[in-house]
Design a protein around this nucleic acid. Structure first.
Lengths: 241, 241
DNA sequence: CGCTACCTTGACGCGAATCAAGCGGCGTGG
DNA sequence: CCACGCCGCTTGATTCGCGTCAAGGTAGCG
């Protein structure tokens, strides 16, 4: 029984301090690979308000993004404009390396799900470092492996599990990725119902119904958009089918 | 409307000549990175009969495989032992790099779907080259990007398309990956009905029913396990929903 | 205070899974 | 060489999960 949640460790190694972009990348590689002086002129730090796009499906990649603060979703536009959320990212995560490495248009759009500060490193600089530094490159390969593993395990879940199980998976993943807020039981991220259904891959109505069921079954407690986890173990069992 | 079939180019660059394993890897990197003499003792060429496993879910990766001849499927064991075919590979493809790079047990099993000749390169040697050669590493990263893109687009398809559309996708992918045999219209791979359903992510019965429908609609022609494509365009349109 | 966008619940119908039964080809053994 | 048995394929009947449509509720904002 595989479960794509079990071993998707958060990338502690890559946690970035809020202020200097260099700090983000130096976790990947000895800073000596970068010309520090040059970087300071090139790297741009920018604010994105909730709902703003970092980049949009179809556009060509001009560089890579590093989240210094905030949360971002990566979503495909599927059939009939229905969104499918593919990945979720937070402080310290890199965004947009896939299109960059493959040198092709973005397949998905990246949108801030809360107010963000995000650094931008131009394509040439990033690729240059990547091609000169095996260690940097190897670390990126590792990132890609993690993403790939997650995606493949999700394929299995999405095709073989029912809605309840997939919703349980989703909640567990939200916890894994974003953790709890101070009270220790409220998932520390605010999604609209529509975003939740976009992640689970279902209709809004079904998502709502299942959340209500979970509440009735004393697994979670809903307070507007906040989701409190009351019985974590029950959630775990649910996800196993 | 995205379609994960459109741009999944076959990896011509990596096509390997049948006989010397070195030839496989030199497409990734200047052979000088390898100690050619050493390789000849270390690299093992082995035969796998149809149905034999290269490796099994849960085992630790000991090296990487290069297909010199034949076809291989990569499949997860999902809920209730139901298989989900995640990737399909052929002559010239590398197998097993994900577990190797991440240094963790295999998540999936690799099984020969026809008689194969496959080379094996031990972990240490491969990782050594990878960490010394940025170009080699970058090429592997590109492979990972391709896999990731494919997996993510498949997530969208599997969650948003219906059975007919998914079956059309599957057939188109089989064609993309394995091409036609000499007659120019028979897909050049033999799958059992069960394998087809494992790829599409459905029940055997549904898979069979839909194939019959396709035959009735003059899109394909079934001759035992052979699948002839009669109307390719219709298939394309179907996959678009 | 009312408008809008989002959330919620109910009723209905379709598509696909499951269960069940029969078919057919192939390999084995008499 | 034929008969039997097994495994994979096929088709039909039934069930049920989930998407869709419809109607109403609620919060936030101007």
């Amino acid at each position: 029984m595989n479960n794509y949640l079990n071993d998707h460790k958060s990338l502690e190694d890559f946690t970035c301090t809020i202020c200097e972009c260099l700090n983000c990348l130096k976790h990947f590689e000895d800073v000596s690979s970068f010309d520090k002086k040059n970087l300071e002129g090139i790297v741009k730090k920018q604010e994105y308000k909730k709902g703003n796009s970092l980049f949009i499906e179809g556009h060509f990649a001009k560089g890579i993004y590093i989240i210094q603060k905030g949360k971002v979703k990566l979503a495909y536009t599927g059939i009939n404009e229905k969104e499918q959320i593919i990945r979720l990212m937070k402080k310290g995560d890199l965004v947009g390396y896939r299109a960059l490495i493959n040198d092709e248009p973005y397949q998905a759009s990246a949108v801030a799900i809360e107010d963000c500060f995000i650094c931008f490193i131009p394509k040439d600089l990033f690729l240059d470092v990547l091609q000169k530094s095996p260690m940097m490159c190897f670390n990126i390969a590792k990132l890609l492996c993690k993403d790939l593993k997650f995606a493949e395990q999700r394929i299995v879940s999405l095709t073989q599990k029912n809605m309840r199980e997939r919703m349980a998976d989703a909640l567990l993943f939200f916890i894994k990725e974003y953790g709890f807020s101070k009270d220790g039981q409220t998932i520390d991220v605010i999604f609209s119902r529509s975003e939740i259904s976009d992640f689970v891959g279902t209709s809004i109505e079904s998502a709502i119904r299942i959340l209500s069921e979970f509440q009735k079954d004393k697994i979670i407690e809903l307070d507007r958009k906040k989701i409190n986890i009351i019985n974590y173990n029950k959630l775990l069992n649910l996800s196993k089918g």
